[in-house]
Structure formats: structure tokens, C-alpha cells
């Protein structure tokens, strides 16, 4: 399971990096989204991989090894919300830029061929 998770995070991140280096704003925003997915997954598995374990102990004295780490789950929720909001903001920005400059190139003008 570790290998699968690690590979998928790596592939997501690499695709994201490739995309944000592209010249079109749409590619850049998709790249940013992929990177944020990779990062969210990464935070999540930092609480160690576990299957079928609840994050909360309802009775005192329960063996803590039977529970998933709740902190990373809380962190990843916050990170998702913030990442979502800032990416939405970038979306507005790229539409503004498209409207003002008439091109979707990140420099706001087409490169002279």
C-alpha cells in the first residue's frame, strides 16, 4: 500500500509541476490543482497509513494504537479549504487577465513568433 500511495502522490506532483511550467493559464491552474491534491494526500498519510481505524476514542484507556491519527485529518481539512479558496481566486484572476489582454498566455501577451 505504501508504494501505491507514494507513486500516486509522486505522479500527481510531477504532472502538476510540468503543467505549471506551461505557458497557458488554464494549464497552470490545473497544475496548481494537481499539486494541491498531491500535498493534501501527503499530509493525510503523514498520520501513518491505516485501514478501518476510527480517529476518535470514546472510552478512556483504549489502546491508542487502534486509532488513526486525528490531527492530520484535521490539518488536511483546513488545507483543502484554504487551497480551494486561493485556487478559486486565481481562477478569477486568469479570467480578468483574459478579459483585459485578450490572450490566455501567462505573460498577458502572445510571444512574438
Amino acid at each position: 500500500m505504501e508504494a501505491v500511495i507514494a507513486l500516486s502522490i509522486g505522479v500527481l506532483f510531477a504532472s502538476g509541476v510540468w503543467l505549471i511550467l506551461r505557458p497557458r493559464t488554464f494549464q497552470v491552474i490545473i497544475g496548481l490543482l494537481l499539486i494541491s491534491y498531491a500535498v493534501n494526500l501527503f499530509i493525510f498519510i503523514m498520520g501513518r497509513l491505516s485501514v478501518n481505524q476510527p480517529p476518535l476514542a470514546l472510552q478512556a484507556g483504549t489502546d491508542t494504537n487502534l486509532f488513526a491519527d486525528p490531527v492530520t485529518q484535521a490539518l488536511v481539512l483546513t488545507a483543502i479549504v484554504i487551497g480551494f479558496a486561493t485556487t478559486a481566486l486565481y481562477l478569477v484572476l486568469l479570467l480578468t487577465s483574459r478579459g483585459l489582454s485578450g490572450t490566455d498566455h501567462v505573460d498577458g501577451r502572445e510571444p512574438s513568433a
Binding site: I20, T25, V28, L32, I35, S36, V39, F42, I43, A79, I82, G83, T86, T87, L89, Y90, L93, L94, T96, S97, L100, S101, V106, D107, G108
Partner: peptide, 21 residues
């Protein structure tokens, strides 16, 4: 300003990802 903002926002979003990692 829009052009500068586009770079500024992308750089900061990527930096935030590094922050989280």
C-alpha cells in the same frame, strides 16, 4: 498589475504547497 498578480499568486500558491509539505 494583473500580469504581476498572476505571477505573484502562482508563486505564493506553490510556496504554500511547500509550506504544507
Amino acid at each position: 498589475r494583473v500580469r504581476a498578480s498572476m505571477q505573484y499568486v502562482v508563486i505564493n500558491l506553490v510556496a504554500s504547497s511547500f509550506f504544507l509539505i
